[in-house]
Design a binder for these strands. Structure first.
Lengths: 229, 229
DNA sequence: CGAGGAATTGAGATCCCTCAAGAACAGTGG
DNA sequence: CCACTGTTCTTGAGGGATCTCAATTCCTCG
């Protein structure tokens, strides 16, 4: 299927936004859209020639599985995010859909050629890569020293910020994109601890739970305070 | 001081290696070498217009300081590594020399112009950025789930690999580039735990300590085994 | 030789994990 | 609409790994 960049929901914000219309059309001819259902995998660790992709809608997780079969979530990908290890001979991590997701995928060699042909694209991907690096380091900072409660508070804060339209304030209410188990894997905790600490955050009045996935921010300042930032 | 790229110890491996001689000379005219002693800072979190640099010799750490004043090491930089957040308005982390280090520094605007002028440089930096991203995620994976002993074993393994000339086998003996406190900060542990676990690794016969900094690999397989990889 | 920092070692406290059971929920089929 | 079933989440009790606090030893450097 061919792509219609003009109706793409992230045509202003994704890496391809820096291309001219003609250049973008040329890339579109090489790309394909793909839809993943929750739990479906885009590629697995070890895959050779793993595709690259821009996420249009939905959410993905990047995760590693250690020797004991424990999963560790290393990053979340939001719309306009770019996925793909451009210079590695094989993928180092799994990439799985958290919700139904639409992607715009490209074969590795097509992306590699595009980077050669369109310097602006290389710069855009560099920018995105540095942003990803910063996000990963922020997560590393969090899981390094902070208490379970602080980690959870920080994650909720981030989710509330991500769920808001404007980038400067928090959403008052949102649904967790992750299960308890996934939150635990991301923060280096266990399911039980996540559940308990969510209860404690509710007791202190920072948040309120609404069903299994819903979170209402009751006291954003307190939440930020607990997160230690 | 002007630069002599022809005698640069990393002129084959650093990002600038992709440039032609002429291009490199043009960049050299804009750059400056700088020497940092152990503990000296290249730039601090919050600095605007922080310089960018390629590390020639020595070693650096990238670290964050949280609200309580605790340091967390997010990454180590080895020779040929590139330092600098190109698209951020200010630096997010501190960068400090671990040993006496020589750098080749550039003003932000000079690097930005070079990226525009030399597409190959942008691609080289993209490659480096993705490698940094992978390294950070590997560290995240480690600090997420592993026990103190496994973290330490993995770090020692990495250091042994980095200290070796050939990339495929380990150095038999090396000096730790970090103090106990820095190791602790990097792995999300305390000084005491690092010290204790080092003792235990010695008891099991995996390593042998030699003075305060020296480490001898006694049983690389066992070490790898303990690290869980 | 002395002083300061860095590392080791010990004892007790704490936070989080493990194991285990029960409750809430979603999907399925009757 | 309701039982049925599996999954996810919650809650509890106990144990273990790591942190905290404190004292001592080991280097390094003046």
């Amino acid at each position: 299927m061919n792509l219609a960049c003009s109706t793409c929901p992230v045509n202003e914000t994704a890496a391809c936004a820096v291309l001219t219309t003609d250049e973008r059309d040329a890339m579109a001819a090489a790309g394909r859209t793909r839809v993943l259902k929750r739990g479906e995998m885009l590629f697995a660790a070890g895959d050779e020639d793993a595709a690259c992709a821009t996420l249009l809608t939905g959410a993905l997780k990047v995760s590693a599985v250690d020797a004991d079969g424990n999963e560790q979530i290393l990053a979340l990908v939001h719309p306009a995010g770019f996925i793909g290890e451009l210079f590695a001979p094989f993928a180092h991590h799994d990439v799985v859909a958290l919700t139904e997701s639409r992607l715009c995928t490209f074969a590795r060699r097509d992306i590699e050629r595009a980077i050669e042909d369109y310097p602006a694209l290389a710069r855009a991907l560099l920018r995105r890569s540095q942003a990803d690096l910063l996000a990963t380091r922020t997560l590393l900072e969090l899981t390094g020293h902070a208490s379970a409660e602080a980690r959870l508070a920080a994650l909720l804060h981030d989710f509330a910020a991500a769920a808001s339209d404007s980038s400067c304030h928090l959403a008052q209410r949102f649904d967790l994109p992750l299960t308890r188990g996934e939150i635990a894997n991301m923060l280096g905790l266990t399911i039980e601890t996540v559940s308990r600490k969510l209860g404690e955050l509710e007791d202190t009045g920072a948040i309120q739970r609404e069903g299994k996935r819903g979170i209402i921010i009751r006291n954003a300042e307190l939440l930020q305070d607990i997160s230690g930032r």
